[in-house]
Computed example of a mutant assay.
Amino acid sequence: MRWTASSEPEPVLAGIGDEAAPALPDQLAAVRELGWNRLELRTLDGTPMADLSETAFARAVEEIRASGVEVVAVAAKIGDWSRPATGDFTVDLAELDVLARRCAVLGVRTVRIMSYPSGGLTEPAWGRTVRARVGELARRAEDAGLVLAHENCAGWAGERADRALDLIAHVDSPALRILFDVGNGVAHGYDAAVMLRPLVEYVTHVHVKDAVRTADGDTAYVPPGEGGAGVEECLRVLADHGYRGVLSIEPHLHLRPHLRAAGGDPGRGDRAAFVEYGRVLEELVRRVRHTRTDAEAVR
């Protein structure tokens, strides 16, 4: 997908549903209000997708099919901030087994993972553990027809492009690719566009959020283009490479899921804010397309 001419397809826009509301009907209504028909699933009524009962999952499938909305990805807990590299790996394997079955029912291939906080391991041991674990996960994902999308967030390969490339090279599987979140650099202390450039050929899914650092060193989330994440520049990098995947909004304006792991209040989604966020992203995408079209016309 090139973004250089109006005759070419526009980026595929979606959103992480629980950023709009806890309940699935409200999540579906939010993307439909935007005129979109794609949803990324993370939790339903606060429960991760792999932890839903069979009855609750079956009901969710019925609602999704009736809505006509397509599920484009599932955000798993595998390797995230709550699961250090010293933890029980069988928990992640069990989650992947459940998600493999459920993704087949939903008709979705992309599963978000991370690469494990250290849990106190030395850097060499941490890296070895992550390579081994993600390699095994990718082997199983490949057998199941899934793609594990590793996010630039928590974990050994989350904050450094060289480690992300090392992980991809070591695992050497089409079932491991990159989920690039353009807003994570603010919280984790790196320039997102700089990190994205060497990774862009492996990017299979994108999260869009933006943020600023506050005076007390915390991270405050803001509409896309209003913070320090370089959202528009990242969109240009993706466009230049011909990225053909999804741009999925993750506003974090009212919901910050990682706070739950530390015993804090993560908040809850807000439908109105979610919809407004989507409108702002649509405008940013139009701006990138028009700028690139004008540049092509000058050449």
Rank of each mutant, 00 (worst) to 15 (best):
I249S: 13
T110L: 13
E233C: 06
H205V: 01
M49E: 11
R268T: 06
S7A: 10
E33Y: 08
E142D: 11
G46V: 00
R65E: 06
V171D: 05
A295V: 03
S118K: 07
Y277R: 09
F274Q: 04
R213H: 07
P224V: 07
G120L: 10
G189S: 05
E276S: 14
A149R: 15
A58C: 00
V208Q: 08
V72E: 01
D191S: 06
L255D: 08
L247P: 15
A138S: 06
A20W: 07
R140P: 08
Y202K: 02
L165M: 10
A154N: 02
A297Q: 12
P9K: 04
A138G: 07
L44W: 13
S82P: 00
I178P: 08
H207G: 04
I249Y: 14
D210I: 01
V288P: 13
G278S: 05
N37H: 15
T219M: 09
P9D: 04
R42Y: 14
T214C: 08
E282F: 10
V186W: 09
E232N: 07
E226G: 03
P174Q: 12
A76F: 03
D172I: 06
A85C: 00
P266S: 13
A132F: 02
L121N: 00
V130L: 03
D294H: 15
S173L: 03
A73G: 09
V74L: 06
L281F: 12
T291H: 15
E95T: 12
L196R: 02
W156N: 00
A58I: 00
D92F: 04
V206K: 07
T110S: 11
Y202I: 05
N37Q: 10
V182M: 13
D191L: 03
V130I: 11
